[in-house]
Design a binder for these strands. Structure first.
Lengths: 154, 154
DNA sequence: TATTGTTATACTCTATAACTATA
DNA sequence: TATAGTTATAGAGTATAACAATA
């Protein structure tokens, strides 16, 4: 491998447009896999935790709104909610004003687990962020903002 | 929600340590899903493409080296290689010096498909990167480098 | 008719455990 | 015994298509 290379690919210099695409994609896919594998609390998966965290923040939401927030298709949310309901962490109820809609809310157990889980679930990533200097953290913070805008459906 | 907030979570200010963890995780997971869903060429999945790209760059590698490069367990790589072999894009051969090892290489069809696919597969991400200004792209490039180091097993 | 959610089904990605062949 | 890879099995996450209930 030539000494000038900083990555695995011959066009992988992240300062070029093609290189940025390659490097960003590779880094993002690896990090996503790592995050999903962090299951310090065996009671809930990452997707489930994510739904509980939304409900904790926003309060009761319909299945459709949750799917939209998570950018998944409705059947995917139905499945996640089914699992959460089986575990006793959410309850589903018909909206009395529009009985097609299902309003989802945390149970007390769900409230407890999402609070208890947050710090443990964050441990892996937080530990690595702590190992960075403040300049690097600032760069990642900026990057997260840019990515959020990029990802938002146009 | 306080006006100072930039995100969905009450501790989601990416300038705080907890907020950075939350924002980065959310952005990374969404982007990873989007990238995996980009299958402009229906012949290969993203994981398969990724293996072909490595082989194109490095030349023939053992199954173990490929698993290490992709940071997956050996059986995961076995499965991906099996799929690629069925599709005629790689061939596997015993290493004559150590017959436990399997050396994997691109077939001519594999070489063709990885080249043909690269630009199409990159289209979604590249389009969005092109919409950014050069300062934002530089930030993402820096972030990709930082993430690469963070992710690397310690 | 249009919308909301569910069921049925299938595919991708990944893992762990147990095994085979070779060193 | 140790290593490289495979087979068997399972689970998470997601999708599309077809459907039911309600508006």
């Amino acid at each position: 491998m030539p000494v000038s290379e900083t990555s695995s690919f011959s066009d992988g210099d992240p300062r070029t447009r093609a290189g940025l695409s390659i490097e960003l994609r590779s880094a993002v896919l690896l990090l996503a896999r790592r995050i999903r594998q962090e299951r310090s609390d065996e009671q809930i998966t990452h997707s489930e935790y994510s739904v509980l965290a939304i409900l904790q923040h926003y309060g009761p939401l319909t299945s459709g709104k949750l799917a939209e927030h998570e950018q998944v298709q409705p059947p995917s949310m139905t499945r996640t909610l089914g699992n959460l309901e089986k575990k006793g962490f959410v309850k589903r109820a018909e909206d009395p004003d529009d009985r097609r809609q299902v309003v989802v809310d945390l149970t007390p157990a769900g409230s407890t687990i999402v609070e208890d889980t947050r710090r443990r679930r964050d441990a892996w990533l937080a530990r690595r962020l702590d190992a960075l200097d403040s300049q690097q953290r600032a760069t990642l913070a900026d990057a997260a903002q840019i990515l959020r805008v990029m990802i938002t459906p146009q």
